[in-house]
Design a protein around this nucleic acid. Structure first.
Lengths: 109, 109
DNA sequence: TAGGGATTTCTGATTTTGTCAGAATAATCC
DNA sequence: GGATTATTCTGACAAAATCAGAAATCCCTA
């Protein structure tokens, strides 16, 4: 599997989670989206690692946000899906749709 | 990632490929289907390893076929998707569809 | 009926992805 | 300043993806 040639299943869901969260997704938000919308419960570390790998592939971008002003803590980092990321996502969807189109109904067993 | 809890992306495509090929899919057929229908070119070894893993998870079953009668060579092994396999496939599809449903149109950038 | 060639499947060994516990960083509040 | 809290990052390992070459097994011919 040459680096960056295709999307792992968690990478795909993570990309979708970022898209759903909109242009100011942060780590915790992505994690919540994965849990609620995808039923995929992962640790926050997993989310960050995945986001970093996606950025290396050019599928997400990120920038450090301003401190929130209340309650302390490191400033949040925000994430967005790049056009390349969106294209990759749509590509895999198209492939799967095409595959399903050729699957016979459950009438064989 | 506890063993067998979810489907890798190639595992998913492989399951779809077996379904498309019908009840007597064999290794080479699955490989061809992956290449033609999914644009995923992998070695034949990769196909077998994936099929074995899927069988361990209970998502496929396989049986040794009768020798073809011509051309020599080891008897082919045939593969089919189990009901559990089909259910897992439909489950991941439903999750992704749900995720996409909440994705805004490409109007942010 | 033994050897050779053909065809298919299986076994290392390696890279990439998925995973998380705990470490590091940095902001706010006394 | 130092404690507290919130967030991100590192180190280590498990699982999935990958393939080159080994193994198995069938057919043919002499």
């Amino acid at each position: 599997m040459p680096k960056g040639e295709h999307l792992g299943d968690l990478e795909e869901l993570t990309l979708l989670a970022v898209l759903r969260r909109g242009p100011a997704a942060d780590g915790a938000g992505v994690r919540g989206e994965l849990a609620e919308a995808a039923g995929r419960t992962v640790s926050i570390s997993t989310v960050y690692v995945t986001l970093m790998r996606l950025e290396e592939k050019g599928y997400t971008s990120s920038w450090k946000g301003e401190p929130t002003g209340r309650r302390g803590g490191k400033a949040k980092r925000h994430y967005a899906v790049t056009p390349e990321g969106r294209a990759a996502l749509e590509a895999v969807r198209a492939v799967r749709d095409g595959m399903w189109a050729g699957v016979p109904d459950a009438a064989d067993a």
